[in-house]
Computed example of a mutant assay.
Amino acid sequence: MWDRQAVDLLDLLVHPVRLRIVFAMSGGQTRTTSDLCTQLPDVPKTSVYRHVGVLADAGVLEVADEQRVHGAVERHYRLRGERAAIGADVAAAMSLDDHRRAFAAGMAAVLAEFNAYLDRPGADPVADQVGYRQGVLWLGPDERAKLIDGLRSLLREVVDNQPTPERSSHLVTAIFFPATPP
């Protein structure tokens, strides 16, 4: 069995709304809870506020700044990326049901993000080069490792890009698993 902290991290992060908040906070920018409500219009505001509080209490989000606005304190949050990921040690200790639950939550979050994109005025999947293809690759262990390392290297080149007027955020989801038994 693994430690309580790992179980808590898994329970914390394996929730579709919290995953979407983590996605929205990625990239180094700060956001208020009100900003997140605007970015996640399909999620009730009370849910966004509650899940931001849960993530902040767990140290996944930290307060970067506070400002008094109309008599209330408005907090600007920043993602603590090192606290927002399930590491290899926790993943190795997860049960098959834990992996099933994590995958389902991740897919639910991706589906919600895609629906939110399609619901935006002017959404144009062709012009935006939206992709959602699935294919089978025949790979040996070394070839699979080389492919994954190559993809990680490509993503590392752009993962620290900061927002600019020319850039918009894009959600990238990579899923690898054997399609047939060995």
Rank of each mutant, 00 (worst) to 15 (best):
R120E: 13
T38V: 11
Q29D: 10
V14S: 14
V126N: 02
D149K: 13
M25C: 06
T173W: 09
G150C: 01
V48S: 03
L12Y: 07
Q134K: 04
I86G: 06
A145L: 14
F114C: 01
G122F: 06
D128K: 07
V158C: 10
T180S: 15
A93H: 11
L79F: 05
F177I: 02
L147W: 11
L61P: 06
A72E: 10
P41A: 01
H99E: 10
A174R: 05
V22C: 08
V60N: 04
M25E: 10
I21R: 08
G28I: 13
L154P: 00
D160N: 14
R101W: 13
D119N: 12
A145C: 04
V172C: 09
R31F: 07
Q5M: 09
V14M: 05
S153T: 14
A88E: 15
K146Y: 12
A109V: 04
D128M: 00
V90R: 11
P165E: 14
P163W: 08
F114L: 08
R50V: 03
Y117R: 05
A174K: 00
V17R: 04
D119W: 01
G87M: 08
L13M: 02
A123Q: 02
Y49A: 10
E113F: 08
A105K: 05
R75V: 01
M94K: 07
L79A: 01
V110A: 14
Y132M: 12
S26Q: 15
V63C: 09
S34I: 02
E143L: 14
L13F: 05
A102Y: 14
A64I: 03
I175Q: 11
L79K: 03
D160F: 12
S95C: 12
H70L: 08
L61F: 10
A105L: 04
R18V: 08
R80V: 15
A64D: 10
P41F: 07
F177C: 11
H70G: 09
G131E: 13
T30W: 07
L137M: 15
H15V: 01
V73W: 05
L139A: 13
R4A: 14
F177A: 15
E166H: 10
V63R: 09
G81H: 09
A92Y: 00
Q129K: 14
T33G: 10
D119A: 15
E82N: 09
G131M: 13
R101H: 12
A102D: 06
R167Y: 09
A116L: 07
L9P: 00
A116M: 08
P125M: 04
R100I: 06
S169W: 03
G140F: 01
Q29I: 06
G135N: 10
